[in-house]
Amino acid sequence: MILQYFTINTCAELICLIAALISLEKNRLWTSWFVIFFLFITVAAEMAAIPIKINYLKDTKHNLPNIWLYNLLLVFQVAFYNVIFSVLLDKKIYTVLILLIFFPLLSVFYIYEISQHGLFEYNELTNSIFSVEIVLCSLIFYYNLFQSDANIKLGIYPEFWFVAGVLFFFFGSTVLNLFYDSIKRILPHNKHFVGYIYNVLNILLYGFWSYSFICRKWLWRISAA
């Protein structure tokens, strides 16, 4: 019974959370605690979504009975990534791109979508804009790294691997976001392959993050010393 909670996604997230807890245990940085908090929320939401889905499987009114949870999780995701990129990006770029453009845009679209179809429908537009924002931020981060004169060991640079996971996940899920309408229309009850793709993307995301935490705790420090 308890095994039903351990899907590929939740296992990847749990491993990442454990890696974060072990690696960032004595780290006093607020970002470390922020990442742990976000991972905890994500794992909790994913695990909560499983019984909801099972219990409401016969719900014929709503196609996706647990989507409201993901719509709520989206608020945390937007907040989390926007805060994280405030550390990773140049202040000027961050202010213009995130604070002045994307954050107001996401807020407007989120409220608009919820007001249009309620919590039980996927916030497709907000998710797509969010993906564009994160991909853009990741590419800007890499561009800055590209331009930097600093002698950085990329193989053990935590920020590099953290953003790599983010870029893989959001760039990879672009197709799913773009085809979301078509998939929903053509295959309303046969979307297993979507789940498989998300499994792969989640493994990539949390795999890279776990490695990033390991770099932060051990490799980067040894190298810096």
Binding site: F171, G172, S173, V175, L176, F179, I183, V194, I197, L204
Partner: peptide
């Protein structure tokens, strides 16, 4: 098939 191939390309 289209979604999977496109996703691979996007990865």
């Amino acid at each position: 098939g289209l979604v999977i191939v496109s996703t691979i390309i996007f990865l």
